[in-house]
Design a protein around this nucleic acid. Structure first.
Lengths: 316, 316
DNA sequence: CCAATGCGGTCAGATCCTGACCGCGGGTCC
DNA sequence: GGACCCGCGGTCAGGATCTGACCGCATTGG
């Protein structure tokens, strides 16, 4: 029955909006008798959603945390916030959730009303690029590719190879992989009739849907391994940056996220900080803002870059 | 009927997981006849969820974007990604969605299974201190306060005032407000029997639930205005930093997010960059990494700080 | 042309839903 | 302590709904 199921959903939505509702309140809101509300609550409970209840004049129902996540019923603003948040984590600000974020984003974008999509895009543009080094990441494109891989759809796009030659590709995507600071698409290239690995930031503009395709399994079964093998050595091995700071290791460790860099003591009064991935300009920025004496160890490019920054500031 | 509603939810979940399902496939998955599936699809459609269908041998059902967002059915990993994303946007990385993010986070945390909450926290810790200058933001605390305001619950916490005196407070929260780079709680202070504004980053540790409270409306009706009025002048007015860069405005604008700073042309070959909020050490270093000639205009403290940073970096 | 798919009508039996009672027990406030 | 409000659950009866089993039709892709 449509009305019954709809009412259960509405009930779940109400219980998510506010913590406590009394039975009569709910009955009036949903335009049914109080007895029916009690029965609906029972149904939700039997579906596994833990609804706590308190008797008495100050009583009411509240939805608690159970074993499974209930369906989330978000209003417009919240949906936008979720989408914006996912885009930001997909961009790699927090290691370890990028690929899941992209997957969740693909799921959300599939059902997101257009008016909300526009709002998300407007906000997303504001983030722009702060890291001049890192590759530009287009969350929309990533979500579109992830959705295509999930749904076994073909994709057509223009690709700019390493030597700047452009080509049009039509592929059957198999997986999206995030390694270090880059995103890769592993796909069966229909034109070349072979497997190819594409850097997502080298895909120009939008990838357009090119109809239904075959579902592809990455050779070997492990997309990440496939990408690692396909990468040229210089891309595959990250170049960590190292600095020596004149401050005890435990002090610095508290101010440097463990995901980005490791801190090892170097005597009592100094420590050595090593980035976990490749170094970037941001590394210089963080270290400089810590306000302790520092010494750049390697690689030489990092030394040059830091020297350039110092030069600029010295000229003041 | 429990099984019918549950099946509708399961159907919605399946349709969100993958783009296309055929009727027989769904029938087998849900263990009902194909005719029932057709009827269920009808029900979902009559509930407003646009399900597109394609006849023919390659046909199937797919969930499209409608006028309203359907209930989101996330798996564990996706839920964690959403929570992590909301925490990161709540921390202010993208202007304009902080307060909504906190609201959505409060909603999510209310129903998030414990095992997932632990995973979120583990990942959240990795972000830790990113901006040494900005106030530390505890997303859990924020979500707890927002939930308390929403549910009209009392809160008890230890508060460290401006002059470092500690006090225990019991309040009835009315609103959570984000201004500039700070979070404020507007609440009725039960001990003082008056309205107070608290800086969230001055609340020590956790705020504990202190039972049911009265629902409070902020005097004047506009929490943001109330906070603005309550702030001491020096807190209320941020001190922006300004620099002149020897590069065209349009070049620089592309490399500086609009929300951190505005870029105005100063002749053809130079531009002036002004931070939107107060300046921080990061501002100095970021500008220096742009690798163009720069000149610090004001305030004087910014010049001093820049000199200090240069000194640190010169010790290479 | 054939096979697979979505669509919708109809039927009959089983099932379920709803509102209306009722009393019980537990909490809150006066 | 007592009044009151609320959640809980049993029972009943009428009505609505759901499900599976048919059926034929239209559309798509190979």
């Amino acid at each position: 029955m449509v009305t019954t199921s709809a009412r259960l959903l509405a009930l779940l939505s109400l219980l998510q909006m506010r913590r406590e509702w009394s039975g009569p309140e709910l009955a009036e809101r949903l335009e049914v008798g109080p007895r029916t509300i009690r029965r609906d609550i029972d149904k939700l409970r039997s579906l596994g959603y833990p609804i706590e209840a308190a008797p008495g004049v100050a009583g009411g129902y509240r939805l608690g945390a159970g074993a499974e996540l209930p369906p989330l019923l978000l209003d417009d603003a919240e949906a936008v916030a979720v989408a914006v948040g996912l885009r930001s984590t997909a961009a790699g600000s927090i290691a370890g959730v990028e690929e899941t974020s992209v997957r969740a984003l693909a799921k959300l974008e599939q059902v997101l009303p257009d008016r909300l999509r526009r709002r998300v895009r407007a906000l997303g543009d504001a983030t722009a690029t702060f890291s001049p080094d890192g590759p530009r990441i287009d969350a929309d494109l990533l979500a579109a590719i992830a959705a295509a891989a999930r749904d076994a759809r073909r994709l057509r796009f223009a690709y700019r190879a390493k030597d700047d030659t452009e080509s049009r590709r039509e592929v059957e995507p198999a997986a999206v992989v995030h390694t270090g600071y880059r995103w890769y698409l592993v796909a069966w290239d229909l034109g070349r009739a072979d497997w190819r690995t594409f850097r997502v930031d080298r895909i120009d503009g939008h990838a357009t849907d090119a109809g239904r395709g075959r579902r592809r399994e990455v050779p070997g079964g492990d997309p990440a391994a496939f990408v690692r093998k396909a990468l040229r050595p210089q891309e595959a091995t990250p170049v960590p940056g190292r600095m020596r700071l004149r401050a005890p290791a435990d002090v610095i460790a508290k101010r440097v996220p463990a995901r980005y860099a490791t801190v090892e003591p170097d005597g009592d009064a100094a420590c050595i900080v090593t980035t976990t991935g490749s170094w970037s300009t941001e590394f210089i920025v963080w270290m400089a803002t810590l306000d302790v004496d520092l010494e750049v160890l390697d690689p030489p490019e990092l030394v040059d870059r830091a020297r350039a920054v110092a030069q600029r500031l010295r000229a003041l």
